[in-house]
Design a protein around this nucleic acid. Structure first.
Lengths: 313, 313
DNA sequence: TTAATCATGACATTACTTGTCATGTTTTAT
DNA sequence: ATAAAACATGACAAGTAATGTCATGATTAA
């Protein structure tokens, strides 16, 4: 066994063990204690943070968590990691913020100068924009941890009607448009509800549950239409163009030869409230054939607006 | 110089040089050719992809791009890299896709099994959701490259009025809500315009420009209000709550003692078209005091809706 | 006080590395 | 066809590094 190989093996073993004596390493690797002392010096030269305690109950303690064997990355691969970190730039208080910072530092230091320039350019020329939020989600890390660990929670949640206590089983967390969401099974309502993580004020208690429940990935795959309703809309050419810009409609738009189009699909009735303002914006470019409820909703809102600002003159 | 150190130095040198003879390495490092041959064998054992050509004009060729010195990461640091890659999951055809895949593979292979389980859980329990887009942006990579390289472009762009040719200076690219955007200086319009990358059909030509222009980061910092207009709105308690959920309004909302609130700020007139439908959705929960234009725009839209669906009865 | 630990130097022994020389193979240029 | 330039690899002497043993000293806890 070459010295370099053994040195790395001792490094991995030591970083996993955290606290050990030279005799333990000697036994593990069938070498003398004197050689262990020498290897410890070599590991210090390598930069491993380690301190020694002399005397009875003495030994060595490693101040870093478990290390991996060193990996050879190409420069381009390192740049791809910075690219990925750039996508997190518009988030605050993420899990792994500290670790990401230290990765970035280690990687950046190891780059030759042309590659450093390239990374700096990536940072300046590309962004994954999200709204800068004043709302914080300090419990995000804990929520994620509890989801992964299959725990049920009692939380304090700020709903429309004020602060209430809920008993939930979290499924996972996802970010969208600068906010974090937690789909969770609500034990009182007996259904999966969506929560905003910034509206969770406290985790009152947690219980372990051996029972596995669906995770976020499965939840995304599980698309439920509870109360089907037909959405049928005629679109002008401009209507087609605008609908293709709206994520919700994009997959539904059928374009015709003369570049007008239509939507004819089945959606869930619960989504009508969400798409009403979308049709307000589209105006004459989208003529709703069905459902009647959507037309009525639009007319009701329009009447409210006219009433409200009629008096304002 | 220890053998391990020299071996790494030769690895870095070789990966940068790509094609070389044993004599060149011998000259560079002041060692014999026979020793070079042995080091090459050691590098092969390390996994460096390298092949040899015998005969006149022979030598060695390395099949990988420039390598970095090996870095020691902790397990948690590796997990943070996977976390960052998870944030890219809802994008397609990104720059560095290939490299990211190979990083992920290298890292995952180096993990002990408990850490592999943790990474798998992160992948299953957290998402950075974006709408799944049917629109592709195959030119994204090129656009980013040209931005970084300070080039001006002639592009074919699909606008409202059809396909047209534009002469632009790209500033950078950013992603928002599943789409990629390119702010660029338009030489014909003499102003910075926002373009959708999926609507760029072709890059007709590029020219190098020595002159540095603002980059994306600077553009984001440079907030321009061209035509100031006052936005003054009274909000009910529910209006406060809903406005705080809208990124645009979030920073403007002032909450009062009785939990109603108001917005009183200066915005750019060009943004009125964007916020009109937001007020449609708010309805009676937000009463617009100013500007008059916004009230008029709302009333006009409302009248159009009522006219349109009156005839539909 | 004793035992268990780290710290380090000295030196003999062992192991590994290097360079020189030799033999063989492959390719290209003349 | 021959020569030159390259890789491929073995053998062996010489040089260098690593290891283990032994010794001395310091520090802590029981």
């Amino acid at each position: 066994m070459s010295k370099a190989k053994r040195l790395l093996d001792i490094l991995i073993f030591a970083s996993a063990k955290r606290k050990f004596t030279a005799q333990e390493i000697a036994d593990e690797f069938r070498i003398s204690v004197r050689t262990v002392h020498r290897y410890i010096l070599d590991l210090c030269d390598m930069g491993l943070p380690i301190y020694a305690e002399q005397g009875r109950n003495g030994g060595y303690t490693v101040l870093t968590s478990r290390l991996l064997p060193p990996i050879l990355f190409t420069e381009e691969e390192a740049v791809s990691i910075f690219f990925a970190f750039q996508s997190l730039k518009y988030y605050r208080n993420l899990p792994f913020d500290t670790e990401a910072a230290s990765v970035a530092h280690k990687l950046y230091s190891s780059l030759p100068s042309e590659a450093k320039v390239k990374v700096d350019k990536i940072r300046s020329y590309i962004a994954f924009w999200n709204p800068k939020r004043t709302l914080d989600a300090p419990l995000l890390k804990d929520i994620l941890e509890h989801s992964i660990k299959n725990r049920t929670l009692h939380i304090q949640y700020e709903s429309k009607s004020g602060l209430k206590t809920k008993h939930i089983r979290p499924i996972g967390v996802y970010a969208h448009d600068g906010l974090w969401y937690l789909p969770a099974y609500d034990y009182d309502k007996n259904k999966i509800l969506l929560h905003r993580v910034d509206r969770i004020h406290a985790i009152l208690s947690t219980e372990n549950s051996e029972e596995e429940f669906m995770n976020l990935e499965e939840w995304f795959d599980y698309r439920e239409i509870k109360k089907p309703i037909r959405l049928h809309v005629h679109l002008t050419m401009e209507g087609v163009r605008q609908c293709k810009s709206v994520p919700y409609f994009d997959g539904f738009v059928i374009t015709q030869k003369d570049e007008t189009g239509y939507i004819d699909t089945i959606i869930d009735e619960g989504e009508l409230g969400f798409i009403t303002p979308l049709f307000f914006r589209l105006g004459g470019h989208a003529r709703i054939i069905e459902p009647r409820e959507l037309i009525d909703g639009l007319r009701k809102q329009a009447e409210e607006i006219l009433t409200m600002y009629q008096e304002g003159i």
